[in-house]
């Protein structure tokens, strides 16, 4: 029996989760929500994490009904992410690890998403589409690495959605992407947008500038409604993602596709991906907002696997790094 606690705070979500041998005992989370039209800035986000970390930690222990002595390993997000929020979360992890005399595992955030997705869905060796506010990658496992087949060459898909939500002044509660998804259901008239797939990679910044520039005029003239634009944006960017995922699956002869990351709980993206998968006689694996969106349990799960392979870090190596690519990690726990 191994119990791991995971600390996640790389973006605007602060999550602390406890996992015992693949069972989630608790996974509380608190999200920093900004007013409509505003994004979250590193300084304020870090302050949010510092203010909520101890209450969330308390909740995680209480819900799991365990005492600190029962914990075997403390896991935290090393990166990638925003510097100050990462450090604020790591500071709490380092301090409790010393207080409770536990080893520390430094976890790559992307690996956390992948391992959590595999645990929850039971997917064995899937082609992974990792889509969130800060990352957009198509990943496939080979020879002890999660290899990046394709990725965004500028902004992440979630960043594109978030920033368009700001143009429309949509609420950031529970998330801008969720509100775009709901509004898009009422969309009827399609606006053609730049479709930018470059080989295995995608680009969203030109598309965003295009729609940011035209949206206010098109809405004012009554040619398109905000719902029409949300629908058009979703259709275009999700089609791009499905295209590169399908190409990666064809390359790897993969019969499984797993969607992880915050944008991954978008039902419409899941529907489009499922359709593609079915046409290839493949299976789609996806999770809901509890595990798709950043959370502490995913860091605990990846950390637990690493801990079992002896991949702990001495205290003075438990720094954070804003850039930390998925393929930098040696995946010792998989064959």
């Amino acid at each position: 029996m191994v119990i791991a606690i995971g600390f996640e705070g790389s973006a605007n979500k602060l999550g602390i989760g406890i996992i015992q041998d693949g069972v989630v005992l608790s996974n509380p989370r608190h999200t920093y929500i900004t007013p409509p039209g505003e994004g979250f800035l590193p300084r304020d986000t870090a302050k949010h994490h510092r203010e909520h970390a101890l209450d969330i930690l308390q909740a995680a222990l209480q819900e799991a009904k365990i005492t600190p002595e029962q914990i075997d390993v403390v896991c935290y997000t090393k990166g990638p992410g925003m510097g100050a929020p990462l450090i604020s979360t790591a500071v709490v992890a380092r301090t409790v690890a010393q207080l409770w005399k536990k080893p520390i595992v430094a976890v790559n955030h992307c690996i956390g998403h992948i391992e959590m997705g595999r645990l929850i869905t039971g997917a064995v060796n899937p082609t992974v589409l990792y889509v969130s506010g800060g990352n957009t990658q198509v990943i496939s496992y080979s020879e002890k690495r999660y290899r990046i087949f394709g990725e965004t060459i500028d902004i992440a898909v979630g960043n594109c959605l978030d920033r368009f939500a700001r143009v429309l002044k949509l609420s950031n509660d529970p998330s801008p992407g969720y509100n775009i998804e709901q509004l898009a259901k009422k969309g009827e008239k399609f606006l053609e947008l730049p479709y930018a797939v470059k080989g295995m990679d995608v680009s969203f910044s030109g598309l965003l500038s295009f729609i940011e520039e035209r949206a206010p005029v098109l809405i004012k003239k009554g040619e398109y409604t905000p719902a029409d634009l949300c629908m058009s944006l979703q259709e275009t960017i999700f089609a791009m993602l499905v295209e590169i995922t399908e190409r990666a699956m064809a390359h790897c002869c993969s019969q499984e596709v797993l969607i992880v990351g915050g944008v991954g709980c978008n039902k419409h993206l899941q529907d489009m991906m499922r359709k593609m998968a079915e046409e290839r006689d493949a299976v789609l694996y996806a999770t809901d907002e509890r595990f798709c969106i950043d959370n502490g349990a995913m860091i605990a799960q990846a950390g637990l696997e690493m801990f079992k392979c002896g991949m702990t870090s001495p205290l003075d190596d438990t720094f954070c790094t804003q850039r930390y690519r998925t393929d930098e990690v040696l995946v010792k726990w998989r064959d």
Partner: peptide, 20 residues
């Protein structure tokens, strides 16, 4: 300033989840 923010967090963590 930034150091003081983190120091405060360490002190609060020790108070709530310590003492050693």
């Amino acid at each position: 300033n930034s150091f003081m923010d983190y120091l405060l967090l360490v002190l609060q963590t020790i108070q709530k989840f310590g003492p050693p």
